[in-house]
């Protein structure tokens, strides 16, 4: 078995950012760009007495999925929680710019060639958002990434993979929401305000962050799938994420773009109606919402295997 085949079996949740980057594209097709050998580490951390990593906590590069060049951003939660500083953020922006360049070059070769080899940006999120040690630069980088996602609209897909330990929170929570297609495992977590921050700001009565089951019910993959805030739910292996990504990229661009939850006036109207529904339901817990959408045995959902869940779940209409 090759290293790449072994990676396919590996838990996405446990995998490092580099393993995920290599494993989600075709075998031996990944080239890392601005990798550790370039030593593009944070210039700001040493002054604050913090250790650095030579990749600044994010693996960036290019691979292939079938004929599609796939530009990959893979965040490493083991380094300062995958948080985004100046260099980390610049690497993200750089990937979008390369995808734009590739798009322009392929478009120049004609429409057929472009459709067949349409580039994509894939982000494997594992982050709490802005890195506080270089918070201002990290914040400004978030704005650039959001602008780059909007700039990709109508050209090439941007796809989110969420299933790693840290989840995807803070500013990166809305970056993920802005992508075209979101693939999660049930272990993935997605939100804006992390559980600890809600508890700290609003009190333990509003949210008990140490209640892991509550955290998963509120932000986990199954909940996001019911709400249609994630488009596909897959098993926890790199191979399962890769298979879902590969089949998505076989779709025409317009089909992938149809998976969006925000990004147009019609979608904002739909989300606004959902916000109004939240007033009507007044849920004490995500389970109340699951029941509202027709899941009679809502309490059983957290215990179900992914396969059983997918067979029986009722999603938001």
């Amino acid at each position: 078995m090759t290293d790449w085949q072994a990676l396919q079996q590996k838990s996405f949740y446990e995998a490092t950012a580099r393993e995920r980057a290599n494993g989600i594209v075709d075998a031996a097709s990944f080239t890392e760009l601005a990798g550790p050998r370039d030593r593009m580490s944070s210039p700001h951390l040493p002054a604050l007495g913090e250790a650095i990593e030579f990749d600044d906590g994010v693996v960036t590069g290019v691979g292939r999925v079938g004929k599609h060049p796939v530009f990959v951003i893979s965040q490493e939660g083991r380094f300062i929680g995958g948080a985004v500083g100046e260099v980390h953020g610049a690497k993200m922006v750089g990937i979008f710019q390369l995808a734009q360049q590739a798009y322009a070059q392929l478009a120049a070769k004609g429409a057929d060639s472009l459709a067949e080899r349409l580039p994509a940006v894939v982000i494997s999120f594992e982050t709490g958002g802005v890195r506080l040690h270089e918070a201002n630069a990290g914040l400004l980088a978030h704005a650039e990434v959001m602008d780059q996602i909007q700039n990709a609209r109508g050209k090439f897909p941007v796809i989110a993979l969420i299933g790693s330990k840290i989840g995807c929170f803070g500013g990166m929570g809305f970056v993920a929401a802005a992508t075209d297609l979101i693939i999660m495992s049930e272990l993935g977590r997605l939100g804006l305000t992390g559980p600890e921050v809600i508890e700290q700001e609003m009190g333990r009565e509003e949210f008990n962050a140490s209640d892991k089951a509550l955290v998963y019910r509120t932000t986990g993959g199954k909940h996001k799938y019911i709400m249609r805030d994630c488009n596909q739910l897959v098993e926890d292996s790199i191979g399962a994420f890769r298979t879902a990504l590969a089949s998505a990229l076989q779709q025409p661009y317009a089909e992938i773009a149809r998976c969006r939850r925000i990004g147009s006036e019609a979608l904002v109207d739909e989300q606004l109606a959902l916000a109004e529904l939240s007033c009507e339901i007044q849920p004490q817990d995500a389970r109340d919402v699951w029941a509202y959408f027709g899941n009679a045995d809502a309490a059983a959902i957290p215990e179900q295997t992914t396969a059983d869940f997918l067979r029986t779940v009722r999603r938001r209409p």
Partner: peptide
């Protein structure tokens, strides 16, 4: 941005993301 349980259940991240995408589109 609003930090609350209902906000997280219904996806506050989408709300702030939606406004940013709209502004980026208007600017562009």
């Amino acid at each position: 941005n609003a930090p609350g349980k209902i906000e997280e259940i219904f996806g506050m991240n989408k709300a702030t993301g939606a406004y940013q995408l709209a502004l980026a589109e208007a600017r562009r």
